[in-house]
């Protein structure tokens, strides 16, 4: 039950960040998701990243659509305002919220159904506008909350728990985001905290639209034989995942190009990440698209930071809005007053 707060035990030994806050100060209510759900690992990674970045928790705003994924903002950053909106429409809420106050840090949480189906239009337009936010897709290839229907990111041939086989090709949100001009595009995996946390840090500090399409297994409806987004599938296939090293200082991973790295998943299983040896030009959109296509043909999923536009523009830059958040402008600075109205009346005669 989400209304049960976590016991407020304070351990003086807990490490503090520069704000004097502990990781606990970034937590939320106890999760009500299924034990082992990938979404909970993402919440944990978000908590870690915000702690690492010394972000004041109340200066973040969490927005989501509807789904198991969309419920998660309750489970992190309890000191921040949150908004559980309507299915597929988080991007427009975030757009409006960001217009009103450009000074907060926005985290949008969505699911693959929420983003790739009902909300595809809003996803596309939030990218096009360059809303300054972290847009996290907790991608499990299924509709968790409505119990296991296929989503538009499910792979062809993937089997649902009820035995149906998906006959449609998936929508690749990373490719879409690249095509639409997103400034920060990454793919990750909920089980790979070492990769995910730095990516989140990068996305939160990126001044523009930052997508993390995060593969996040649904243990209840999409973790069976025949699913291509299950832990089992990953283990069985020795994880065809390629990791790219992001260039930004705050995004670091501690293994060398070409190396294999064993990663312990939160449920105890282990998997192997393989990094791409050689250089990937992070600032080349066309190269990023080509890379994804090349690995798709090989049946591999590229993870890591895939594209970063160092000159990305956010919505406010494009709209030329004032530095002061619009919700903080004094009324006196907004109303033209009676004298001006008299001259407007005169223009209308």
């Amino acid at each position: 039950m989400t209304y049960i707060a976590k016991p407020a035990v304070r351990n003086p030994a807990l490490p503090k960040n520069s704000l004097g806050l502990t990781r606990r100060d970034y937590e939320g209510k106890i999760s009500t998701l299924c034990a082992g759900c990938g979404h909970d690992s993402i919440s944990a990674a978000l908590i870690q990243a915000c702690f690492d970045l010394d972000l004041p928790p109340h200066r973040l705003a969490k927005l989501s659509g509807i789904g198991c994924s969309a419920k998660t903002p309750t489970y992190f950053l309890g000191a921040a305002h949150g908004f559980n909106g309507v299915h597929g429409r988080m991007p427009s809420l975030a757009t409006g919220a960001n217009l009103a106050n450009r000074d907060l840090v926005y985290i949008g949480i969505s699911g693959d159904g929420d983003t790739a189906s009902i909300g595809l239009g809003q996803f596309v337009h939030a990218i096009r506008r360059g809303v300054n936010m972290l847009y996290m897709v907790e991608n499990n290839g299924t509709y968790g909350l409505t119990k296991g229907q296929f989503s538009a990111t499910a792979d062809v041939g993937s089997k649902s728990k009820r035995g149906e086989v998906n006959i449609y090709p998936p929508i690749d949100l990373v490719r879409l985001a690249l095509d639409l001009g997103a400034g920060f595009v990454a793919r990750s995996f909920s089980g790979d905290k070492d990769q995910l946390v730095p990516l989140i840090r990068g996305a939160l500090t990126y001044p523009g639209f930052a997508l993390i399409d995060c593969f996040s297994p649904c243990v209840t409806f999409n973790n069976h034989e025949g699913s291509t987004k299950s832990y089992t599938y990953i283990r069985g296939h020795d994880l065809p995942i390629v990791d790219l090293i992001p260039p930004r200082q705050e995004i670091t991973v501690d293994y060398e190009p070409g190396a294999r790295q064993e990663v312990t998943l939160h449920d105890g299983s282990r998997c192997v990440l393989r990094k791409l040896a050689g250089d990937h030009d992070l600032n080349d959109r066309a190269a990023a698209l080509a890379l994804i296509e090349e690995h798709r043909r090989r049946g591999e999923l590229v993870t890591g930071l895939i594209f970063l536009d160092p000159e990305g523009q956010d919505m406010h830059m494009r709209m030329n809005t004032v530095e002061t958040p619009l919700n903080a402008l004094r009324y006196e600075a907004l109303c033209p007053g009676a004298e001006t109205l008299a001259s407007i009346n005169a223009e209308l005669r």
Binding site: F83, R89, P91, S92, T95, G96, Q122, H125, L326
Partner: peptide, 19 residues
């Protein structure tokens, strides 16, 4: 906006945030 769903969504997001 891209449609009226997004228009009202942005209105609600901005109003929630005090504009």
């Amino acid at each position: 906006a891209e449609d009226e769903l997004a228009a009202i969504g942005s209105v609600i997001g901005a109003a929630w945030n005090g504009a």
